[in-house]
Structures are given as structure tokens and as C-alpha cells.
Amino acid sequence: MSSLVNKPTPPKKELKLADHVKYEHLIAGTTAGVTSTLILHPMDVVKIRFAVNDGIHSTPKYSGIWNAFSTIYRMEGFRGLYRGVTPNVWGAGASWGLYFLFYNSIKNFIQGGNVNTPLGPGYHLLAASQSGLVTLFVTNPIWVVKTRLCLQVGENQKYNGTIDCLSKIYKSEGIVGYYRGILPGVFGVSHGAVQFMVYEEIKNQYQYFYNKPISSKLGTLEYLLFSAVSKIVAVITTYPYQVIRARLQNQLYSYDGAVDCVKRTWKFEGWRGFYKGMGTNLLRVTPATMITFVTYENISHMLLKYNKNV
């Protein structure tokens, strides 16, 4: 009678969050953010100028979107339409790169390493919110600089570029200056969370309908459509925070914090004040998101497939 020796099974390795980090998402997200920003930055300049026009302070006023474009071009030239483009490229590249990196790492951690494990809306909101908060604290100084450079008009030429702006903010306002608008920015994390939740749910339902794994690569048309729908839903539900954030970051205005800004906006402008520039914003962010997500999805799938075969 032969004796059987049971070999002890090695303990299962517990995966940590760091084990789910894939830098392909960072590269793809950064590339996508930079690409869409370079193409559509003039829309961002117009949106910011509409947002900070509160009817109280002396700022340029435009009768509409096309009037704003023509006026800026006539008064400031082509360069005026690209004010703040350097920090915008830095900010968009860093934000999208980090956001996609953190989001996919957290999501994959929740999935236990199986990218085809479906997650519900709640988990998508959780992963997007956590990645949004981390990204916000890293990149907020860049957005403050971008806002101030975009708003330099006429005699308000206070900064000579990105580095000069960073330096002067630190000298006159300290570290606190880099984090103006951070409170509405924290509330604004909900924007990315809503967008990613809607985007992921639409993708998953589409894959279920065609009986495909949820990680399968889709076509360009699907990515364009799903990203557009998710962005429109997110903008409509969360836009007011962007107006408050831009006004707090504007060096020409003086508010005693986010609550004071909300009160004064409501008092002088009503609910419409919280949606100033939304039309321009939708015209900009919808195609920007479509470009960003199509670029990201294609590059990330390509890089992941390449690294898997190496």
C-alpha cells in the first residue's frame, strides 16, 4: 500500500493596489489629454471669460460665442486665443494621465485583477471619486495658473508666462494661492465620477447586449458616442461648481470663500449665473472628451496588447 504525501499548497499571494498599476494608462491618458487640449484650447479661453463675467466687476463682455472669438482675435490676435495654453497642456496631460492611471488601478483592484468582472454604478463612482480627489490635489496649482493667464486682458498683464505666474503667486499668496478654488474643485470631483460611471455603464450594457467580454475593444464610433453622452450628462448635473471655481481663482475678483461666491452669484444673477458659459463649455468639452476617450482607448489597448505579447 503506497503512502500518499500531500504537498502543501503555497499560500495565495494577496494582491496590493500597487500590483494593479499599469503605466500604459498613464501614457495613453497623457497623450489623449494633450491632443484634445491643443486642438480645442481657444474654446476654453472663451468659456472662462464667460464664466467670470459676474455683472459686477469690469471685465470684457461678449454678446455671444462667435462675438467672443472674433473680439479676442481682433483685439489680441491669434495669441489671445491661446492664452494659458502651456499650463493647460500641462494640466490636461497630467490630469488625464493620472486620472486614468488611478482610476484603472483602483477599478482593477476592486475587480481582483480580472478586468472582465462587472462592477455596478456604485463601484464606478467610488473608483472615479477616489482617483479624482488625488488628481485634483496634484494638479490644482496648474489650473490656477491657467485660469489667471487666460484672463489677462489689456492692462491686466500681470504674468509673463507659466513659471512667472507660479513664482508670483507663491511670493504674494504663498502655498494657499495654488489651492484657490479647491473647495468647489472637491465638489467637482463628482463631475468626473458621474462621467465615468455613465461611460462605463453604457459600455458594459453594450458589451452584454452583444455577448462580449466587457474589456473588449470597441469601434471608434462607439467610443465617440458613449463619451459624448457621458460628458453631456456630467456637465448638466455638475456645471455650477466650475463657475464658482473660476471666479475664486480669478485674481481680479474678491470673494470671502466659496460660500460667499455662491451667495453673491445667486443675489446678483440668480440661477442663470451658475450656468454662464455652459453652452460654450458643452461645445468645447463634448468634442474634447470624444477626442480624449477615442485617443486613450486606442492607445491603451495597443500598449496593453503590445506589452502582453512581449
Results as ranks from 00 to 15, higher is better:
Pro10His: 13
Pro11Ser: 15
His20Ser: 10
His20Asn: 11
Glu24Thr: 11
Leu26His: 05
Ile27Gln: 00
Ala32Cys: 04
Val34Lys: 00
Leu38Gln: 03
Lys47Tyr: 05
Asn53Gly: 03
Pro60Leu: 09
Pro60Phe: 05
Ser63Cys: 10
Ser70Val: 12
Arg74Gln: 08
Arg74Cys: 03
Met75His: 11
Gly80Asp: 04
Tyr82Arg: 05
Arg83Leu: 03
Gly91Val: 01
Lys107Gln: 13
Asn108Val: 01
Ile110Lys: 01
Gln111Phe: 05
Gln111Lys: 11
Gly120Asn: 14
Pro121Cys: 13
His124Leu: 09
Ala128Thr: 03
Thr135Tyr: 00
Trp143Phe: 10
Leu151Ala: 11
Gln152Cys: 08
Gly154Asn: 15
Glu155Ala: 14
Asn160Lys: 15
Lys171Ser: 09
Glu173Ser: 15
Val176Asp: 15
Gly177Met: 10
Tyr178Ile: 10
Ile182Gly: 00
Gly185Tyr: 01
Met197Ile: 01
Glu200Asn: 15
Ile202Phe: 06
Lys203Phe: 09
Asn204Val: 08
Gln205Leu: 11
Tyr210Trp: 15
Leu218Asp: 12
Glu222Asn: 13
Tyr223Lys: 06
Phe226Gly: 02
Ser230Tyr: 01
Val233Asn: 01
Val233Tyr: 03
Thr238Met: 09
Val243Pro: 02
Arg247Met: 13
Leu248Glu: 01
Gln251Val: 07
Tyr255Met: 06
Asp256Phe: 04
Asp260Arg: 02
Cys261Ala: 14
Arg264Val: 02
Gly279Glu: 09
Val285Asn: 02
Val285Ser: 04
Pro287Ser: 06
Thr289Glu: 11
Thr289Arg: 01
Phe293Arg: 00
Val294Arg: 02
His301Gly: 07
Leu303Trp: 04
